[in-house]
Computed example of a mutant assay.
Amino acid sequence: MGIGLASLAACVNPSARIATSLEGYGFQPAQSQCVGDRLEANLSLGQLQQLGRAARASRDGDTTPGRLTASDFVRVSGQVKDPKVPFEVAKAAAACGILTDPASPL
């Protein structure tokens, strides 16, 4: 039952799902939630799904799969064919303070 509820919550609350994913890559919780909230507010569910697929695909074969830098995140968003996605990702990253040190994890 817990897995089913978690899956349902993820569908209902994309912001929380984004935040949890970003925290898994080393982002600070407040920054992760900030990015998640902004992306949920400014991108459609379809755009968020495309971003998620691009992020997963970019991690396949990665030698450091548990680490994602701000520049990695922005670069991955550029792989989505919808130009609004990388624009909103970059805007959220800047607004949430994750682009202040490009060498540090999100």
Score class of each variant (00 low, 15 high):
residue 2 G to F: 15
residue 2 G to N: 13
residue 3 I to G: 00
residue 3 I to Y: 01
residue 3 I to H: 01
residue 5 L to F: 08
residue 5 L to E: 07
residue 5 L to C: 07
residue 6 A to V: 13
residue 6 A to N: 09
residue 8 L to S: 04
residue 8 L to K: 07
residue 8 L to N: 05
residue 9 A to T: 09
residue 9 A to N: 12
residue 11 C to V: 09
residue 11 C to E: 11
residue 13 N to C: 02
residue 14 P to Y: 00
residue 14 P to R: 02
residue 15 S to N: 04
residue 16 A to M: 06
residue 16 A to V: 04
residue 19 A to L: 07
residue 20 T to H: 01
residue 20 T to M: 04
residue 21 S to R: 10
residue 22 L to G: 03
residue 23 E to A: 05
residue 23 E to D: 06
residue 24 G to I: 08
residue 24 G to R: 04
residue 24 G to W: 04
residue 26 G to H: 11
residue 26 G to F: 08
residue 27 F to C: 13
residue 27 F to A: 05
residue 27 F to M: 09
residue 28 Q to C: 05
residue 30 A to V: 14
residue 31 Q to L: 02
residue 31 Q to V: 06
residue 31 Q to M: 00
residue 32 S to P: 12
residue 34 C to Y: 04
residue 36 G to S: 08
residue 36 G to T: 05
residue 36 G to C: 06
residue 36 G to W: 05
residue 37 D to A: 13
residue 37 D to I: 12
residue 39 L to A: 06
residue 40 E to R: 08
residue 41 A to W: 11
residue 43 L to V: 15
residue 43 L to S: 06
residue 44 S to K: 08
residue 44 S to E: 05
residue 44 S to L: 04
residue 45 L to T: 07
residue 46 G to N: 03
residue 47 Q to D: 14
residue 47 Q to F: 10
residue 48 L to S: 07
residue 49 Q to C: 05
residue 50 Q to V: 03
residue 51 L to K: 02
residue 52 G to Y: 10
residue 52 G to N: 15
residue 52 G to I: 12
residue 52 G to F: 08
residue 52 G to Q: 10
residue 54 A to T: 14
residue 55 A to N: 11
residue 56 R to Y: 14
residue 56 R to N: 13
residue 58 S to E: 15
residue 58 S to T: 12
residue 58 S to F: 10
residue 59 R to N: 14
residue 59 R to G: 09
residue 60 D to Y: 13
residue 61 G to I: 13
residue 61 G to D: 10
residue 62 D to V: 13
residue 62 D to M: 11
residue 62 D to C: 09
residue 63 T to I: 14
residue 63 T to A: 14
residue 64 T to I: 11
residue 65 P to I: 15
residue 66 G to N: 14
residue 67 R to Q: 07
residue 67 R to S: 03
residue 67 R to E: 11
residue 67 R to Y: 06
residue 68 L to C: 11
residue 68 L to H: 10
residue 69 T to V: 04
residue 69 T to F: 08
residue 70 A to Y: 08
residue 70 A to C: 13
residue 71 S to R: 15
residue 71 S to L: 05
residue 71 S to T: 15
residue 74 V to K: 08
residue 74 V to W: 11
residue 74 V to T: 13
residue 74 V to H: 10
residue 75 R to H: 14
residue 76 V to P: 05
residue 77 S to I: 14
residue 79 Q to T: 12
residue 79 Q to C: 02
residue 80 V to L: 06
residue 81 K to I: 10
residue 82 D to R: 00
residue 82 D to N: 11
residue 83 P to F: 00
residue 83 P to T: 06
residue 83 P to D: 05
residue 84 K to G: 03
residue 84 K to Q: 11
residue 85 V to C: 01
residue 85 V to E: 02
residue 86 P to R: 01
residue 87 F to R: 02
residue 89 V to P: 02
residue 89 V to R: 00
residue 90 A to S: 06
residue 91 K to I: 04
residue 92 A to Y: 09
residue 92 A to L: 09
residue 92 A to E: 04
residue 93 A to G: 15
residue 93 A to M: 13
residue 95 A to N: 03
residue 95 A to H: 00
residue 95 A to E: 12
residue 96 C to P: 12
residue 97 G to Y: 04
residue 97 G to D: 13
residue 98 I to A: 01
residue 98 I to F: 00
residue 98 I to R: 00
residue 101 D to K: 11
residue 101 D to A: 14
residue 102 P to C: 07
residue 102 P to A: 03
residue 103 A to F: 09
residue 103 A to P: 01
residue 105 P to W: 04
residue 106 L to T: 07
